[in-house]
Design a binder for these strands. Structure first.
Length: 288
DNA sequence: GATACGTGGAA
DNA sequence: TTTCCAAGTAT
């Protein structure tokens, strides 16, 4: 029954997919891996320019592996979650050292790389190498929650039931295309805020629409404020290091955040995370 | 399982 | 202006 979702969604994708550079036939496994890490919790529109710059600068894992981790963080710019830049750099070094410079092709090998979890391992194995995996990202989870479970939103964290459902839908042939098609539907039509059900290829069989699009009942998800948080403080401090050409004196960091206690805590966090380092003379810089 | 982790665009 | 949230992962 839910297998009847496949054809309409695949047909819809054939006509409406976006032309993204990491989806083109000439995209390399490395380019696909870089895109997947950059896309974690980050919109396509913001990834596009950074991905393009990265691929020109570091077209292979070896090229990035030769750089310092700090250069990866610097060119990450304001994409957010800068530990991902560190992860990508560590991936490049691991791929160079342990995989002869080739991005590994199996789920398990990919999963063992830093910053690559269940979603990213499945996505890279699927999109770069044609593997058959259930690719369960937030878009897919939302589409299945609505179309099959009849609920507006999926649970907060992926459940075993969701995995079973996603796995049951993986077609025997063309798993990667199916995965990208459902993701695209979630990204363009079955969106979180204002779904475009009138443009949806499976609107006639969508359990949520058939139930009258009932609103999510459970507790509203906690929207975390950003202003004044440690996160924002870390962002400010790292921005100073990123934009500086060399080591910066402590004064330069002190200048961007008033609360001394919070500022010291955030700076310690950056040092602990390897996003910054302190030199013997007490100045700070991105990791060398 | 809950929490920490950035950023900026859209509603 | 405030809130939501975008191809998650690690602890």
């Amino acid at each position: 029954m839910s297998a009847s979702l496949r054809e309409p969604i695949l047909d819809w994708y054939a006509e409406h997919n976006r032309d993204l550079p990491w989806r083109r036939p000439d995209a390399t496994p490395w380019g696909i891996l870089v895109s997947e890490i950059m896309l974690q919790q980050t919109p396509v529109a913001r990834v596009l320019p950074i991905w393009t710059e990265w691929m020109e600068r570091w077209p292979t894992p070896e090229a990035l592996a030769k750089e310092s981790p700090g250069e990866a963080v610097r060119h990450w710019g304001r994409l957010g979650y800068p530990r991902r830049a560190l992860n990508l750099h560590a991936c490049a070094r691991a791929i160079t050292a342990d995989h002869a410079g080739r991005v590994p092709s199996t789920y398990d090998e990919l999963r063992a790389l830093p910053g690559i979890g269940d979603y990213t391992a499945a996505a890279v194995a699927s999109f770069a190498y044609g593997g058959s995996h259930a690719v369960l990202d937030t878009n897919v989870r939302r589409v299945l929650a609505r179309a099959v479970r009849g609920e507006e939103y999926p649970p907060k964290a992926p459940t075993a039931a969701e995995r079973r459902l996603a796995e049951s839908l993986v077609p025997p042939v063309g798993a990667p295309r199916w995965a990208v098609a459902v993701m695209e539907l979630g990204a363009l039509v079955c969106t979180a805020r204002a779904p475009r059900c009138e443009r949806c290829p499976v609107t006639a069989q969508c359990a949520w629409r058939l139930a009258g699009r009932p609103a999510h009942d459970g507790p509203a998800r906690q929207g975390q404020t950003y202003a004044g948080t440690d996160r924002q403080c870390r962002g400010r401090l790292l921005a100073v290091l990123r934009e500086a050409h060399g080591p910066v004196p402590k004064d330069a960091l002190d200048a961007v955040w008033a609360d001394h206690v919070q500022r010291e805590r955030a700076l310690d966090g950056l040092l602990d995370d390897g996003l910054a380092e302190v030199l013997p003379d007490g100045t700070y810089q991105l990791p060398s």
